[in-house]
Design a protein around this nucleic acid. Structure first.
Length: 417
DNA sequence: AGCGATGATTCCCG
DNA sequence: CGGGAATCATCGCT
């Protein structure tokens, strides 16, 4: 991390225009009072303190409001004050009201019944698979319908009250006109005052409806709240890719898609995983040593196996990477071949002589490491290609490594650079 | 309950 | 726009 960044973390500077624009894209509001500013500047739910806040009581979990929402809310509040102040003079189309109307329309609260379209859109936004939360979606729809009903009932009430009050005032003025002259302009002014008052009430109704929808969404669609660890097999696949590309653990879009497909997760989850993995590996290489050794051995064994198969004329020609045995797995863009999961690995014929294979690989792996154990703890496998990259893992790279070119038959099968 | 691991989110930078 | 870093919330084990 650069010095400037360190300084920025300590005292964050105002966000960039791009960030602000990004924030404003999220055209929703949330309950301001439920949030506070976290030490790092992000907005977070106050109920994290106890998790027994009002929301919990209503069956809602601790929801996090995105800073974007906070920013929008502030913006709206500011404009509301301005518009109320300015409303005495003229009546421009209120952007705040338009915004609320748009959101209510988009959410299917106002306007024609959408029949769950909103829920589907919300599901798409959350990137959720349709199968795993159908029940929750019906629940979501039911609650949205409830909000919709309340909104319409209240809106009707306000309109009725507005009309009644206007009629009442008109009658009063008419009565007064017997005793004093009342100009049509004065009547008009009174009516417009009443309408303004009621429209501000309406605005409040719309605002609270938006808030309710917002909370509902966070309740059902907050992915973080419903975090699940990836399956063992998925982690295995990701780790195999990571350690076999340790010199440059930056999968291409195609590789990410391939991994996502194999792991039954989304591409962004793959990106998250690699982002987290790179940072955590870099932070504590020693801790990941054992894991690295394991996957290095696996990769090397599979590579050896592939080589053996290639050298055998009976097997090699009719076995393209994508149509290989269930245990093998390849990426067309990298040419790497490695095992899919531990089970098939251990149960395969290769697994039978694993011990001896791994033992025989140790010198290769050590050679691949390029530098002694004393550099970073007791390492058996290390990022040989990291230095070639110049960015990845540049900090722990010892200067001596430059004199050790990558060994042939390296466990690191990365061929991308 | 405590705690480490882990997936997700947010910020900023290049 | 992708990545690094910090942080958060939840999981899963003890």
């Amino acid at each position: 991390m650069s010095i400037s960044r360190a300084v920025l973390v300590a005292g964050r500077r105002p966000c960039s225009l791009r960030t602000r624009r990004k924030r404003v894209q999220v055209d929703v509001q949330a309950l301001e009072s439920n949030y506070e500013t976290a030490p790092h500047g992000a907005t977070r739910c106050k109920c994290r303190q106890t998790c027994t806040c009002e929301l919990r009581k209503h069956g809602l979990n601790c929801h996090r409001m995105k800073p974007a929402l906070f920013s929008v809310l502030c913006e709206i509040k500011e404009k509301t004050v301005l518009s109320i102040r300015g409303s005495q003079e003229e009546e421009p189309p209120d952007p705040q009201l338009m915004r609320l109307d748009n959101m209510l329309l988009a959410e299917g609260v106002s306007g024609p019944e959408k029949g769950g379209g909103s829920a589907a859109a919300a599901a798409a936004a959350a990137g959720a698979s349709p199968s795993d939360n159908t029940i929750e979606h019906s629940d979501y729809r039911a609650k949205l319908t409830q909000i919709r009903q309340i909104y319409h009932t209240e809106l009707e009430k306000y309109e009725q009250a507005c009309n009644e009050f206007t009629t009442h005032v008109m009658n009063l003025l008419r009565e007064q006109s017997r005793t004093r002259p009342i100009s049509p302009k004065e009547i008009e002014r009174m009516v417009s005052i009443i309408h303004r008052k009621f429209s501000s009430i309406q605005m409040q109704l719309k605002q609270s409806t938006c808030e309710a929808v917002m909370i509902l969404r966070s309740r059902f669609l907050d992915a973080r709240r419903k975090r699940r660890n990836f399956s063992k097999q998925a982690t295995e696949i990701l780790n195999e890719y990571f350690y076999s590309h340790l010199s440059n653990p930056y999968p291409s879009e195609e590789a990410k898609e391939e991994l996502a497909k194999k792991c039954c997760i989304t591409v962004s989850q793959v990106s998250n995983w690699f982002g987290n993995k790179r940072i955590r590996y870099k932070k504590n290489i020693g801790k990941f040593q054992e894991e690295a050794n394991l996957y290095a051995a696996k990769t090397a064994v599979s590579a050896t196996n592939a080589t053996v198969q290639h050298s055998s004329p009976a097997n090699s020609p009719a076995t393209p990477p994508s149509a290989g045995p269930p245990g093998s797995y390849s990426f067309p863009n990298t040419g790497d071949i490695f095992l899919m999961n531990g089970d098939s690995f251990q149960n395969s014929q290769v697994g039978a002589n694993l011990q001896s294979q791994v033992a025989s690989l140790h010198p290769v792996i050590n050679q691949n490491a390029g530098y002694s154990d004393s550099v970073v703890g007791r390492r058996m496998y290390s990022p040989s290609g990291a230095q070639a990259n110049g960015r990845w893992l540049d900090a722990p790279t010892p200067p001596s490594i430059t004199s050790h070119p990558e060994a042939p038959g390296s466990a690191d099968s990365d061929t991308s650079n």
